[in-house]
Write a protein that binds this DNA or RNA. Structure first.
Length: 554
RNA sequence: GACCCGUUGGUGAAGGGGUUUAACACGCUGCCCUCUCAAGGCAGUAUUCACGGGUUCGAAACCCGUACGGGUUACCA
């Protein structure tokens, strides 16, 4: 086909396009940002629920744009309507909001480079394809699925590269007449790239994370426009990231093998190309098989974004975890700069892992515990309140009714250099502080205590009624309970008891244990005296009496 | 099959020719502190960096093979 014929073909295929390339080039001018500002984008497709990997990728986008004074936008890649799921779109935006990963532009955020829904940009893609046809860089291909499958089979048998290229691209050099004929017969077609590449030649590119990579040149006639006129990911990526002036394409490394195609498309279209940063997937070592695999929503509860919300893992803890897997030196920095914020850290691609990152649940848990340990009782109370409002209304009500007590309980052993680390998620509060709310304690009372010891109720009552003074400091209290122990045939310390176990009935620890079980229904708890102080004598005695009843039932 | 990428303890990893008897963190184990738990303190947890060969006075680091793992090879993204 000569130039005239190609023009005719282009008009024949796309008669109704209102604008030309120049129109769009002018419509989306260069961004006015300072030097070094990065423009990143998160491009999810609304085909399922959001998982950790998506969050990770969006987190990277956000962090790099933010620290460089650039822009991070959200573009919905919904070019495959077949795979779209109900509510997928709303889910993406609400999850991003919920996890505090906030784009400053894009779908549902507005901006000058929209529409940010690829399904609304069809005309734009077609305009560029039309131009490509005029230039002889793309052509309509009428091959049927069956024909393509046959070629594939042949290629498999011959052990040659699979795909439509070279002499397999039979429609590449169709004459205008032949195309017209097929169009008349209403044969369906796609638009393919007429790849100018030669697979014997090598191209080299530098990925921001993976470094230098070499590939054979792309020589496949890849589909640009599907038969329904919508673009494939590849084409949409190149057009959109050019028009939206993305500077850094941060995406999962399942895309690295498409790099030669994408580079070729940028060249053919005459666009300067963005930098690429391919991030490693989050993997996990399978407990059963020991094999390394991608996170699976079915097997790994942490894989789905919903889990964090439902279990009540603080967003900040998740951000810290994402930061530690984003940059390998973040963790150490944070350890030495505990008072600082993630925003104070400068992320670099050089410090990003090249291979897969294995999900480390224990580390996340530790991060979350540390998070809670630094919060005051009041803060924990308020955040837990928010969580329960959504996920445990019954407990939420109880929290509201017992506000003052709860804040005090949550504040035990807080504020010092060595704060407690016993809560990892909001849903732990109910269980960890089961003794804090009277009505809950009465209902649950000693169900959680699984020891078989029988404690001396009268001794406990004697202690509470005649010795216990709740107005003193902790060390004074402890001295007094030691005295009480000695007066009743118990050793004042476990050490002494161990020296001569035969002359004692037990030691202070045993008395404390008895009180602890009667008062809290468990044999482990935060500082006993602090708990008793908050409860007050009356409630303590009530619980001891309750224990007496419980004991009779055993 | 082809093409890419990767492989350092239980985990995340540092380190890119001699300063490494392999940092740091999490986990685990033991001891200490101690009324229990948590926290904290101390110690232990890879004599060796997938394997084989090469380069070198010297290799976890550089080169070549092999194995294993991952990704791609769609009119899915």
């Amino acid at each position: 086909m000569n130039a005239e014929e190609r023009d005719e073909l282009a008009e024949l295929l796309f008669p109704d396009l209102k604008h030309d390339r120049d129109y769009y080039e002018k419509m989306y001018p260069e961004r006015n940002l300072k030097d070094g500002a990065m423009v990143t984008r998160y491009g999810p497709s609304p085909t399922g629920s959001v998982h950790l990997g998506n969050l990770f990728s969006a987190f990277c986008d956000m962090v790099y744009a933010r620290q460089s004074g650039g822009k991070f936008f959200l573009r919905i890649e919904d070019t495959d309507q077949k795979r779209a799921i109900e509510g997928g779109l709303e889910n993406i935006t609400s999850v991003l909001k919920g996890f505090d990963i906030l784009p400053n532009e894009g779908y549902s955020y507005g901006g000058d480079y929209g529409p940010y829904l690829q399904s609304e940009r069809t005309e734009i893609y077609q305009t560029y394809v039309k131009d490509l046809i005029k230039q002889g860089c793309a052509y309509p291909c009428f091959m049927t699925e069956q024909e393509i499958a046959d070629i594939r089979e042949e290629q498999e048998i011959n052990k040659t590269k699979i795909g439509i290229y070279g002499h397999y691209a039979v429609d590449r050099d169709l004459s205008l007449e032949e195309v017209k004929e097929k169009l008349e017969k209403k044969e369906e077609y796609v638009i393919r790239l007429k790849s100018p590449g030669n697979a014997k030649k090598e191209i080299e590119m530098v990925d921001c994370i993976k470094g230098k990579m070499k590939f054979p040149e792309h020589d496949m006639d890849t589909v640009l426009l599907k038969k329904d006129g919508t673009p494939t990911y590849h084409f949409a990526h190149v057009i959109d990231d050019h028009l939206m002036h993305t500077t850094h394409v941060i995406r999962g490394d399942e895309w690295v093998s498409s790099i030669p195609l994408h580079i070729q498309l940028f060249e053919i279209l005459g666009f300067s190309r963005p930098e690429y940063a391919h991030i490693a997937p989050i993997t996990i070592k399978d407990n059963e098989t020991g094999a390394i695999r991608k996170l699976s929503k079915r097997k790994d509860p942490w894989a789905g974004a919903k889990y964090y919300e439902e279990a009540g893992i603080p967003i900040e803890a998740l951000h810290l975890y994402l930061a530690t897997i984003t940059n390998t030196n973040f963790e150490e920095w944070y350890l030495n700069n505990q008072e600082k914020d993630i925003r104070d850290f400068t992320f670099t691609f050089e410090k990003q892992a090249i291979g897969g990152t294995s999900f480390d649940e224990a580390k996340l848990t530790n991060l979350a515990k540390t998070y809670f340990s630094r919060k005051s009782g009041k803060e924990v109370y308020e955040e837990t309140l928010k969580y329960t409002e959504k996920f445990d209304l019954e407990y939420h009500k109880l929290l509201l009714e017992n506000k003052e007590d709860m804040i005090q309980f949550l504040n035990i052993e807080k504020g010092g250099d060595r704060p407690r680390k016993d809560i990892a998620k909001y849903s732990d509060v109910k269980e960890e502080f089961s003794y804090a709310i009277d009505s809950l304690f009465e209902k649950e009372n000693y169900k959680k205590y699984d020891g078989d010891k029988i404690y001396d109720v009268d001794l406990a009552l004697d202690y509470v009624n005649h010795t216990l003074d709740l107005s003193v400091e902790n060390d004074v209290w402890f001295q007094s309970i030691k005295n009480f122990a000695e007066n009743h045939g118990y050793a004042a310390s476990p050490k002494e008891y161990k020296k001569n176990p035969e002359i004692y009935q037990g030691h202070v620890g045993d008395i404390c244990e008895a009180l602890r079980v009667m008062i809290t229904g468990r044999d482990k708890s935060p500082d006993l005296f602090s708990i008793m102080k908050i409860l007050g004598k009356e409630r303590i005695i009530k619980r001891i009496e309750q224990y007496r009843q419980y004991q009779k039932t055993r």
